[in-house]
Write a protein that binds this DNA or RNA. Sequence first.
DNA 1: GGGAGAGGGCTTTTT
DNA 2: GCCCTCTCCC
Length: 664
Amino acid sequence: MKIDEIIESLNPEQKQAVLQTDGALLVLSGAGTGKTKVLTSRIAYILSQGLAFPSQILALTFTNKAAKEMKDRVAAIVDASNCEGLWLGTFHSVCLRLLRNHIDLCGRDKNFVIFDTDDQKRLLKNIMADDFKIDIKKTTPAFVADVISRYKDKGVCEVDVNMMQDSLHIADGNFVAIYTLYQERLLQMNAMDFGDLLLYPLKIFAGYPDILLQYQQKFKYVMVDEYQDTNTVQYAFLKLISAGRGNICCVGDDDQSIYSWRGAEIENILRFEHDFTNAKIIRLETNYRSTKPILECASELISNNRGRLGKRLFPCDENACVDGHLPVQVRGVFSGADEARSIRDDIESYGRKGFSTAKMAVLVRAGWQTRAFEETFIKSGIPYKIIGGTKFYERQEIKDVVAYLRLLVYPTDDLSFARIINLPKRGIGDKTIGEIHKHARMRGISMFAACENMLKDGSFSPKLSGVIEKFIKDFYRWRGVFNGSITESNGENIHHGKLVQSILHDSGYLDMWYNAKTPDAAGRVENIRELVGTITTEFESLSEFLEHISLIADSDEYSNGDEVSIMTLHASKGLEFDIVFLPGWETGIFPNERAIEEAGDSGLEEERRLAYVGITRGRKVVIIYYAGARMVFGQWQNNVPSMFIKELPKEYTEHSTFSTAFSV
DNA sequence: GGGAGAGGGCTTTTT
DNA sequence: GCCCTCTCCC
């Protein structure tokens, strides 16, 4: 399609949002109102009008999925080669790209490794247990990791002690010291965590105004997706980088802000008008997704929230979908099992009415709720897929393989070293690893280098020396292949896919799973095969692969095309389904008790936004459930219906109670 | 150092 | 009720 046609296809508000290229603009975009269309059309418009070169446009998203979709959609409008130069990506990938240009200012070298949340927890566990002798049952590394991350979201570094008053008591008063040592270790390991990736650009901007100026001049247009999810650091980044030209367009929906527990500041979007001079706000309220009862329920429910900019959702054409105007259904059932059976029956009956199961979804508040549906669907032969859950790259065997590759490419990555030094079993236990670690810390070198020293010193027993020497020599050989100093007999470089295979083979890692007698071993071997296939065919080098997976949470979900989706409400944001099932609308479960305990009224409002997200996923039918009793953590619990049910307008809902106690 | 049982703990999880 | 992690004993 050409750009003129695209513009013509927009509604008046969308059109205004696309054509208003200059100045600060907030596009308040309700669910299903075409925000991605606005963003992509806007980029295409700027390019086609020659207002900027691709490299002068900065477009930021939160997920890789959103970035990819945007890129694809822009490429479909303008010449695809134009898209290559765009700075379009997630906050983290853009910051990484920026940091690569100035890595010398961060105390790292260009081969720095990015630690994910799992690495973060392992490192903190070491620090807390070994260096501070903290009872990690009382204060878990996960908790401390979370506190540190929240500070980083706010831009509070380990030196800003006066801003951490609330947390000084954590870990027997050692919090600041732990945070400080944690940062030191990251530096030693040539590593950064996700928070650092966003923080360091700000540090650079603060310390080197000329560099900031360079980027301010470079980026003529800045665009941001899901602005309601930005944290303080991202906000500061946007504010600085757009300050030169002043052209910033943020798209978001305050009613869909559901990530405050990860540092997102809904205040950022609420304050937009005051933050940016001469800011304009455009509201997109025409919904192209859902029928009127669904929109009325969603609008009415969310109107109970106080901290919001305020908007409603209107159906695009009330008359066009008359026969689709089923009311939102609210069903009371006896138990959790009945809830699952009732949803199963609904799926089957809507299936008979011609709805595709692929366009149905069960959206739950918490991950544990999915199990009941999984079990029931298996018994009834209903195809389903669970979205989210354990992701491919988070699987144990995948992380193991990645650790081998990481240690290959990043020799100072001690966490990867510690993960695989005894995997497969080489007879190297905690004691030996502890000694290696101690040696490394005392000399300020990596654990890998410490091993080499200790081999020379004769610090290991003869048996240990043998296995450790093999380990070290293996890595030297693999690194030789990696850097091209070891080649095929004809002098050609050995393909990196082949290298990965020899690593898995020579190390004995693959054999470990082949010989394992556990029932999951075959699946793990299969996963490893898939990984090797991906590395071999889709990446040019191991470095490229490692960089890719460090910033990606998930491999693409595939589908057979007829599965019901089961996922959390959080995971459903941005998706749509013909029929949406919303189970577990009971006090304590939803709104979630702990969310309210932790954040009071604002926690409740976030839960309500979550409900709003859930309802607005549905195109034709939304069915809400509450059970009178359910088994939670192995205990029977009597539950009362969620307060959100009372907040739905009576004229658009249909209430009923069901008992399927005698069905199977 | 490694395997088997007990104990605790448990929301959400874009990168 | 289940899974992960720690610890005890071989």
